[in-house]
Amino acid sequence: MSSEAINRSRAVDWSLRAYIVLAYAFVFAPIAASFVFSLNSDRFPSIPLGHFSLEWYRAVASDPLVWQGLGNTLVIGLIVGVVSTLLGFGAAYTDYRYNFFGKQVYLALALLPPTIPVIIMGLAMLAFLSRVDLSGRAISVIIAHVVICAPFAMAIIRLRLSQMDPALEPAAWNLGASEWATMRHVIVPFTKPAIFGALFITMAVSFDEFAIAWFVSGLNETLPVKVLGFLQGQVSPRINAIGTFVFVISMTLVILAQVLLSGRTGPTAADKE
């Protein structure tokens, strides 16, 4: 254990631990509170708690608009994840494989979208999509989300490619694999953990994204947009129930991605034919 290191005072050691606990508490306390109140019978979040109840989950589950929102969110998230990962892979491989004039500009532009304030992005998307007659539909949200998600996918896959021995690809060519065969038998298997990592992260980003979806979704509201609708009408513990549900899904995706990306060479058993 690191606490047995010689030059470490016990006081520093314990205060560092306390710091970590506090930092996590700060981040997760609101989510935990939302979870607790989602199971509380009281109409308003207050202490002392009432009794245990699933009534808010029941209320949510019986609302067809929530189901519609969830359905939209899931379908959109899945499509956005796949499309963003494909685009991100292409962009990352282009960066890895080729040197060309203006490559720095290419990279900067490819990674730029997430740095644009979402309100501006949402407004711009709405203005543009309505002009080309694509606003207020599920496809609008997909397009807008791909724009912000693809750079994440590219960054993740690019990192993995940078860990690859530069001789690996020419070695495959040298052993008789054409460029396409090398892509299929070497590049994709090597980057597979990052490809799935990117897929889950981009799905999670799309799943949670509110502001842009609010601008462009029209009647095809995603779940986060729906939640805002609840908030505007009334303060209801149903929001806590939805929040808990969304949190669990997002966290699952992020944790899956994290597990895939932190494995050193990825799951080797899964690479067999």
Binding site: A167, L168, A172, L175, K192, T265, D271
Partner: peptide, 13 residues
């Protein structure tokens, strides 16, 4: 065929 300085063995195989 070439034997590489880094050997370039495929780590996923």
């Amino acid at each position: 065929p070439m034997v590489w300085q880094s050997l370039a063995l495929f780590p996923f195989l």
